[in-house]
């Protein structure tokens, strides 16, 4: 394979990863998974029954690993046993992944709301019907992109010099790992925008958070009582794209360094390039953090309890 073709594939994977990261984060925001989930789960107990979807399928990493691994397993089966084209196989696999996401979402919404009955938490079937299809739609996009990345890594990318192809791991295992990865990045990058920013944007920077404020996440939106679709609207302005860029960068930079530096100093070039990228990003993050503290701080000094 020519180097230009290799770089084209790396770019394609980066683009697919950006889309996957964005849809993954929006999907988890509609379902209030991971970071905001504990606040939604607590809300009824602190006196705020709500109409927010409670999608508690484990954390985000295992739930995305599940839909991606199942989608890749089905796609691998189709490619092995029929002569269907890989793209169709991946699309069917992603459809199965989306169905699984829907089933697990329905059971967690019904189950968790029912288990909070003593706090006056109802099971609203219209919330279920309105949200599940948008969850499944986003899950389909995520699964399709992740399974596509895994397929390209396993079957399409070949070493530019030796001409040897493929990754030593089988295709569904790579999908599992990338699924875990996109879930972890969505959980740490995008969910902060929903779990913290959405609820606490009117609090002073660095003022600390009261556990009793947790229930507020289910209360007021721009108009009326907050619903899960409002959260997707809010998060699509920053949290989703930020997750997409973060995951796209992970996939792009990782494949870029291993494609370009694969044969520099017997493969150690790729390792050195990886370490350099990590170092540069760590320094940049530290700089960004101190900049934000200086700009939006300082933390107000403790001046005794303030009357509520």
């Amino acid at each position: 394979m020519e180097p230009a073709m290799g770089m084209g594939l790396v770019a394609l994977m980066g683009a697919a990863a950006t889309v996957a990261g964005c849809s993954e984060d929006l999907e988890s925001d509609i379902g209030s998974q991971s970071n905001p989930n504990s606040q939604v789960q607590l809300a009824a107990q602190v006196g705020y029954p709500h109409r927010i979807f409670n999608k508690a399928i484990s954390g985000e990493p295992p739930s995305n690993a599940m839909i991606c691994a199942a989608g890749a397993g089905v796609a691998a089966m189709l490619m092995a046993s029929t002569d269907v084209s890989p793209l169709i196989a991946i699309a069917i696999g992603a459809f199965v992944g989306a169905l699984l996401d829907g089933i697990y979402s329905v059971t967690s919404y019904i189950g968790r709301s029912t288990s909070q009955k003593r706090f006056n938490q109802y099971v609203y079937l219209d919330v279920l019907r309105n949200q599940v299809l948008s969850l499944m739609g986003h899950a389909y996009i995520t699964t399709f992109c992740i399974v596509l990345i895994s397929y390209v890594m396993t079957y399409v990318m070949v070493d530019p010099i030796t001409g040897l192809g493929g990754h030593p791991f089988p295709f569904p295992v790579i999908a599992l790992i990338w699924g875990l990865c996109v879930g972890a990045i969505g959980s740490s990058t995008g969910d902060v925008h929903y779990g913290a920013e959405r609820e606490f944007q009117d609090f002073k920077f660095g003022s600390g958070l009261n556990a009793a404020d947790s229930g507020n996440i289910t209360r007021f939106a721009e108009a009326g009582i907050r619903s899960s679709i409002d959260n997707a609207w809010f998060c699509s302005k920053f949290g989703g794209p930020a997750t997409g860029i973060a995951f796209g960068m992970v996939v792009f930079l990782d494949n870029w360094r291993s494609t370009v530096f694969a044969h520099v100093i017997n493969g150690w070039g790729a390792v050195i390039a990886g370490l350099t990228i990590v170092l540069v990003l760590a320094l940049y993050n530290r700089k960004l953090e101190t900049y934000a503290r200086k700009k939006y701080g300082p933390f107000p000094e403790y001046a005794g309890d303030i009357e509520a």
Binding site: I57, S58, P62, S63, A65, M66, A69, A70, A72, G73, A76, M77, Y104, T107, S108, F169, P170, F171, P172, V173, I174, A175, L176
Partner: peptide, 16 residues
């Protein structure tokens, strides 16, 4: 690679 869906769906079956 079918071990991947078996692993994760088995785990979700126990925890979910």
């Amino acid at each position: 690679g079918y071990i991947a869906p078996i692993f994760i769906l088995g785990a979700l079956g126990i925890l979910h």
